[in-house]
Structures are given as C-alpha cells and as structure tokens.
Design a protein around this nucleic acid. Structure first.
Length: 367
DNA sequence: AGTTGTGTTGAT
DNA sequence: TCAACACAACTG
C-alpha cells in the first residue's frame, strides 16, 4: 500500500463501519439505564433536560456527568472517552452508549497502564490455558493503534480477527504475531532516506485560508494518491466518493503529519482536510508558498511532505532548524523573517515546534 | 449547520 | 490525573 490507509476516525463514520450500530438518532433514540432518567435534547453549550418522570422541561446548562471513569458527556447527548498520560489527554472517541465509552476507556487503561489498571468494568478472565489473548493483542499493538481502533470502533473486530489468525497460524505451524506496528520509519537518525518527488503545489489563498483544506490537483491525486474504490452504487459517476482515508506524511524534521484525504463531490476535488490547518499554522504557510509531496524509493514507501517559502519569484526551502538538545530540552534558533503582525505569533509556534510541536502531536508521537 | 474533540482550568 | 466547560476545528 502506498500510504497508510486508515478509515475515518470520527464516530459518525465509525458507526457506519461497525457492523450493526444504527446511525445515531440525535438524543431521543433510547432510554438508557433506568438510573439515568434525564436525557438531553438539543445541542450546544446549554441544553434542555426532560425529566421523564413528570415531563417537566427544565433549562440546564450543565451536561450530565458520567458515573464512569474516563467518560465525559458530549453536548449532543453522546459520550466521549478519554484517558490521560504524561499530563496530556488522549481522546478515545465518542460513543452513543455511556457504557461503550466506559469500556473503551477500560481497554485504553489496560494498554496504557497494564492489566491491573483501575477500570470501569471487571478485567476479563484469563484463558483456561493461562494465555491471555486480549493482553497479548494489546501488547502487540502500539498505544496509538489501540487508540485508533477505539476511535474507529473497530477494536472488537480486530481483536476477534487477531484471535482467529492466531489459531490459524498455530494450525499451520506458523506464528502470527504482531500486526502492523504503526512505524514512523523516520528513525531519528538524521539520515535522509532516498526519495522521489511526486509533485509540488503552490498553495492558493484558499489553501491557507479558513477552508482548512488543501486541494490536491486532480492529476496528481489520481496518479499518486488513488482513493480506494467505493463499494456502493454510485461508483460509476464519481471518481471515488469515499469517506476518505487518513494518510501519514513525514516532514523534514521527522515529525509525522496525519491528514484526512478525501474527495469532495461538491467541488469535484481531492482534498486534504483534517490536520491540514495545523500544518499551515505550524509552518506558517502563506499563499504562494509551496508544498511538496515526496515518497521514499525504498521498500517502506514512506510519504513525505515538505514546504517551501516564496521569496520574490523563487521558492526556497527553509533550512532545517538546528535543534540542540540541552538538559532534555530542545533549544533552537528561529530562522524566520516573519514580518508584520504574524511575526510574534509565528515565532511562538516555531518554539512549540522545537519543543515537540503542538500538544496533540506530542501525544501522538509519544504513543 | 451539526458534531467532535481540543484548549483550558480548577479539583483531587 | 481527572472532568467540566467553552468553542474552534471538523465534516462533505
């Protein structure tokens, strides 16, 4: 595969992926456990709560707390799951059922903190042969992978498949071990891997504006980043109207950027959406600058992203920041000519970059 | 326009 | 570490 192809991480999509979950019907679809008699209506910061005992409507701006650890209410009546590590929150996704969120937390807790982690529900029993299949499964995947599965609601499936593969493998005498370790093969060795330039795009004002997306020129998109063919009916008319995939690209500093890549029917264009605005912000991309897509010529086929700043009529690749690690802290000298009001902001962000980037990215990298 | 999940902060 | 709250970023 040319690029890491991971399905959507948003729960709305995940529902459609999971085998049987019905699509979320706002907030009134179900009456949860008897203990939870209030259900939320509407969305936004404040909400109306219906007391089902007497039908009296009361204004409340408070979201209902969850009785489960790691579970937080969402404004639309769904539930989020999160776990903390290294003073950072790791988001585990959103769920229709509070219990589902709670058990997602449990899974993450076991992966992050071991089998003895405090959880909402009891830890599954150890197999009769003494082998704990689920623990093995958890251990054979990175934290990031487990989090991905939780967010995509595919954990149960993957666990099941893994068990099946394990059994098959044993039957054939070959051990089926850890699946893809989500490697970012930029071994921080400073070695520049051989790579080819796929294409370069000079970014437009809208590429760096409020739309939070980068349009990938069609010819390049179809040549280098073909979206998986769609499975349902309308496949004839549209190039590839999928929900999109997540692609990982590494920048010259070795930082891995994850973008959603999809096809927008409305504009008939291929776009990078989620994650793109962060890239624009961190690199301080301006209209006229260029982004360059590259790929390793080695077997890993790692994708890379690079950027060039427009200087007059020329595009210049800014030198890699010299980062010096001193007492465990990255020190470095900003190399930009920010100019006007953007200047101050930019150097602040560059500092963040030097220190290990945006908080979220720091989490992902730490996993 | 509706929803996710991040930024932030105060508590434990 | 943790959850509450607000709301920017996302989605298509």
């Amino acid at each position: 595969m040319e690029y890491s192809c991971i399905d959507d991480t948003t729960s709305t999509t995940s529902e459609s992926l999971s085998t049987s979950t019905p699509s979320p019907k706002k907030t009134t679809e179900k009456l949860s456990p008897p203990a939870m008699r209030l259900y939320r209506m509407g969305s936004g910061g404040s909400s109306v709560v219906l007391d089902s005992d007497n039908g009296v409507e009361t204004e409340s701006r408070k979201l209902p707390s969850s009785k489960f650890k790691g579970v937080v209410p969402q404004p639309n009546g769904r539930w989020g799951a999160q776990i903390y590590e290294k003073h950072q929150r790791v988001w585990l996704g959103t769920f229709n059922e509070e219990e589902e969120a709670a058990s997602s937390y449990d899974i993450a807790a076991r992966r992050f903190r071991g089998r003895d982690a405090v959880t909402n529900f009891k830890t599954p029993a150890i197999d009769n042969d003494g082998d704990d299949a689920e623990s093995a499964f958890l251990e054979s995947h990175s934290k990031a992978e487990i989090v991905d599965m939780l967010r995509k609601h595919t954990y149960a499936d993957e666990l099941q498949q893994s068990k099946r593969r394990f059994l098959d493998g044993n039957g054939n005498g070959k051990r089926c071990e850890s699946t893809t370790i989500m490697t970012s093969p930029h071994g921080n060795d400073g070695v520049l891997r051989p790579r080819e330039v796929l294409f370069e795009k000079t970014v437009t004002p809208s590429d760096v504006g409020k739309l939070n997306r980068l349009v990938i020129p069609k010819q390049h998109a179809e040549k280098h980043f073909p979206l998986p063919a769609m499975t349902t009916a309308t496949a004839t008319t549209n190039p590839s109207p999928t929900k999109g995939v997540l692609i990982n690209l590494e920048d010259r500093a070795g930082k891995v950027w994850r973008f959603r890549y999809s096809y927008w029917n409305s504009s008939q264009s291929y776009v990078l959406t989620k994650g793109w605005s962060r890239f624009v912000k961190e690199k301080n991309l301006r209209a006229g600058d260029a982004v360059c897509f590259e790929r390793s010529t080695g077997p890993d086929r790692q994708l890379y992203i690079d950027w060039k700043v427009r200087s007059g009529t020329e595009l210049i690749s800014t030198p890699v920041q010299t980062v010096v690690r001193l007492f465990g802290v990255n020190i470095f000298k900003p190399n930009d000519v920010a100019g006007e009001c953007g200047g101050k902001k930019r150097s602040r962000e560059v500092d963040l970059f030097a220190l290990g980037c945006s908080k979220k990215q720091a989490i992902i990298n730490a996993l």
